[in-house]
Computed example of a mutant assay.
Amino acid sequence: MSLKNTDHWGATSQLLHWTIAVLILSIGAVGLVMGELPRSPKWFWVYTLHKSLGLTVLALVLVRIAWRLYAGAPPPVEGTPRWQARLASLTHGAIYVLILAMPLSGWLYDSASGLRPFRWFGLAEVPKLSPSHEALADAMHETHELLFWVLIALVIGHAGAALYHHFVRRDATLARMLPRRWLAGSVVPTAAPSPDLPPEDPR
């Protein structure tokens, strides 16, 4: 499998895509459960895990953006209407922005909340982005939650579009983000005319 992106997403792009997707789902689950836990040592452990995973996603999405600039992206699948390709491009861009903004807003919220510095997975202390500021902390907390729900809505739309292309249009949109041997038999290839045959008589 090619590392760079050709007509198919390469191995590096696939690994980053699915790793980030799994981490975002994990962070969302932890974040939703975290609010229901009593303030105890377990709560602080879960809270630190949530923040550590968020900063991991921030680092990975920066790597993914850099890799995409280097490796490029496959062109739209043949036959995709221009408006769908344009909408997909805008959706991808919005998802990138949100995946960047969410951990940054959470980081800023944590910094402004006045809590003691936390250690990323217990390994390295994370610096503060701002001094303690109650109004800023409140604003970033609300922003963080809003960005999460907007991101979830876009991800659902993104996944729904991929399933639509796979099961309705039966093209390679979804298969291109999976190893080539996966879903290989479920995609209907575009028929190409044989160069040895004359063109059909339009009459």
Rank of each mutant, 00 (worst) to 15 (best):
residue 4 K to E: 04
residue 5 N to K: 04
residue 5 N to A: 03
residue 7 D to Q: 11
residue 7 D to E: 13
residue 8 H to T: 13
residue 10 G to I: 01
residue 15 L to Q: 03
residue 15 L to K: 06
residue 19 T to H: 02
residue 19 T to G: 04
residue 20 I to G: 01
residue 25 L to K: 10
residue 27 I to Q: 15
residue 28 G to L: 01
residue 31 G to W: 01
residue 35 G to I: 02
residue 43 W to K: 10
residue 44 F to W: 06
residue 44 F to G: 02
residue 49 L to A: 14
residue 50 H to T: 05
residue 53 L to H: 06
residue 54 G to F: 09
residue 56 T to R: 12
residue 57 V to K: 08
residue 58 L to E: 02
residue 58 L to C: 03
residue 59 A to V: 13
residue 62 L to A: 12
residue 65 I to T: 11
residue 65 I to D: 01
residue 67 W to P: 14
residue 67 W to M: 13
residue 68 R to M: 08
residue 69 L to S: 12
residue 73 A to Q: 08
residue 75 P to Y: 00
residue 80 T to Y: 06
residue 81 P to F: 11
residue 81 P to M: 07
residue 83 W to V: 15
residue 84 Q to H: 06
residue 88 A to K: 12
residue 93 G to I: 04
residue 93 G to P: 07
residue 96 Y to T: 07
residue 96 Y to A: 03
residue 98 L to W: 06
residue 101 A to E: 02
residue 103 P to N: 00
residue 104 L to Q: 05
residue 105 S to I: 02
residue 106 G to K: 04
residue 106 G to C: 06
residue 110 D to W: 14
residue 111 S to R: 08
residue 115 L to N: 09
residue 116 R to H: 08
residue 117 P to M: 15
residue 118 F to H: 11
residue 121 F to K: 15
residue 121 F to E: 13
residue 124 A to N: 06
residue 124 A to M: 10
residue 126 V to M: 10
residue 127 P to D: 07
residue 129 L to S: 14
residue 134 E to P: 05
residue 135 A to P: 04
residue 139 A to W: 05
residue 142 E to R: 04
residue 149 W to H: 07
residue 150 V to N: 03
residue 154 L to S: 03
residue 154 L to P: 10
residue 157 G to M: 10
residue 160 G to V: 01
residue 160 G to S: 02
residue 162 A to Y: 03
residue 164 Y to I: 12
residue 165 H to T: 08
residue 170 R to T: 01
residue 171 D to H: 12
residue 171 D to P: 12
residue 175 A to N: 12
residue 175 A to I: 09
residue 177 M to T: 05
residue 178 L to E: 03
residue 180 R to C: 12
residue 181 R to G: 09
residue 181 R to F: 15
residue 183 L to T: 14
residue 183 L to G: 13
residue 186 S to L: 14
residue 187 V to E: 10
residue 189 P to A: 11
residue 192 A to D: 06
residue 195 P to T: 00
residue 196 D to Q: 10
residue 197 L to G: 10
residue 198 P to V: 02
residue 198 P to H: 02
residue 199 P to N: 07
residue 199 P to Q: 05
residue 200 E to A: 13
residue 203 R to M: 00
residue 203 R to Y: 01
